Computed example of a mutant assay.
Amino acid sequence: MTGVLALTALGVPAAQADEAPKSKAAALTVLAPSDGDSSAGDTKITKVVVNGGKSLSLGTTARKTITAEVTATDPEGMYETHSFLWNGPGADATNNALGIFQPNSPTGTCTEVNATTTTCKYTIVVDPARMSNSTAGTWKLWVYAIGNDGDHVAKNVAGTTKVLRASTLTANAAPEPVRKGKPITVTGKLARASWDTFQYAGYSAQPTQLQFRAAGTSTYSTVKTVKTNAIGNLKTTVTAVKDGYWRWNYTGSSTSTPVAAAGDYLDVR
């Protein structure tokens, strides 16, 4: 994250928003994120794509980027578009100032599609050092589009994306080699990134699938589901039937990414 966005940096202090501004400059003084959704005139936001429709997996050290693409139109042509991501309760984009990302420029990189329509692209840097665990989950895109005639439209939630805590998962099947029909024990550990401590910690009480893929095949099948213990460990016993790969598979949560362990090959004799 390049820094917390100061609302005054947008030049849009809170004001009445129930009438159309008389100029492009006036439009910049009409709305602030705290005013909620509003529109004046015939400016429209026609398309919003955040991060290509995909979630972002964020670990403990590496910065990553989220892209946002906003298309807006006005019969008189587009003047400019503002946009940023935010995270917080309710519909007020200022509820969680800690969670406001600042784009690399106030108006992004904009391209005219035609005389009435413009598409703006934003690159938003996400830094684990600026995050906290409480902000994992759904992020919302605030968009404010202004036409050449001063008409405008603002949406607090023009689009959404998910910023999730990265997960890791291991698997080990033992003993090996093993005789057919004998019991084997499959262990592993599920952990996820903490943006509070910048370390990975075990993730407790999470249902995780034990899966098997026979040697010479390409598809895993779920054998059973086991919950992680208080420190994220997994352990279960099954019967050895044939050569193949054992792994754990986690389907994810509202705050953490899905992950599958590398398969551990077991030689059955």
Rank of each mutant, 00 (worst) to 15 (best):
Y200C: 02
A129K: 15
G150Q: 08
Q209W: 03
A193I: 04
K189M: 11
Q206K: 13
K155T: 09
S167A: 11
K155W: 05
D127H: 01
K162F: 04
A191T: 15
P128S: 01
A201Q: 14
T170R: 07
K182H: 07
K189I: 10
F198C: 00
T135R: 13
A171C: 09
K140S: 14
T168D: 08
D151K: 13
G181V: 10
D149F: 06
S194H: 09
A166F: 06
R165Q: 14
T170I: 02
A145L: 08
A171N: 09
V163F: 04
A166C: 01
V163G: 01
G137K: 11
F198K: 15
K189D: 03
V125L: 13
T161F: 00
P177S: 01
N172Q: 15
V153F: 01
N172M: 11
N156D: 14
G159D: 05
L141W: 10
N133G: 08
A191N: 13
S132Y: 10
Q199N: 13
D149G: 12
A191H: 06
V186K: 00
T135P: 00
T168M: 10
G188Y: 11
A136I: 08
G137S: 05
P175Y: 03
T170L: 01
V157A: 10
K140G: 00
Y144T: 07
T185I: 12
G181C: 12
M131T: 02
S134T: 13
T187K: 13
V163P: 02
A154M: 13
E176W: 01
F198S: 13
L190R: 10
A205R: 13
P177R: 05
S194I: 11
Y200S: 11
G188M: 07
P183R: 12
L210W: 06
T160R: 03
T138M: 05
A174I: 03
V143R: 10
A136K: 07
G137H: 06
A173K: 08
Y203N: 11
W142D: 08
N148A: 14
T185M: 10
H152P: 00
G147A: 06
L141F: 09
H152L: 15
Q209I: 01
A201K: 15
Q211E: 06
L169R: 04
K180W: 05
R179F: 04
K162H: 11
Y144W: 08
Q206C: 01
A173H: 08
V153W: 07
D151I: 00
G181S: 12
I146K: 07
A171L: 09
V186E: 01
V153M: 05
S167R: 03
V178L: 01
T138S: 11
W139M: 02
L164H: 05
F198W: 10
V153L: 05
W195Q: 02
G202A: 06
M131Y: 03
S134W: 03
P207H: 01
K140R: 15
Y203T: 15
N156Y: 12
T168A: 10
L210V: 08
I146N: 00
A174V: 12
L169V: 07
G188D: 04
A173Q: 07
K162S: 12
V178D: 08
A201G: 10
A174E: 12
T197K: 15
A166Y: 06
P207Y: 02
G202L: 02
T185G: 06
R192S: 13
A171V: 11
D149L: 07
V186L: 03
R192C: 09
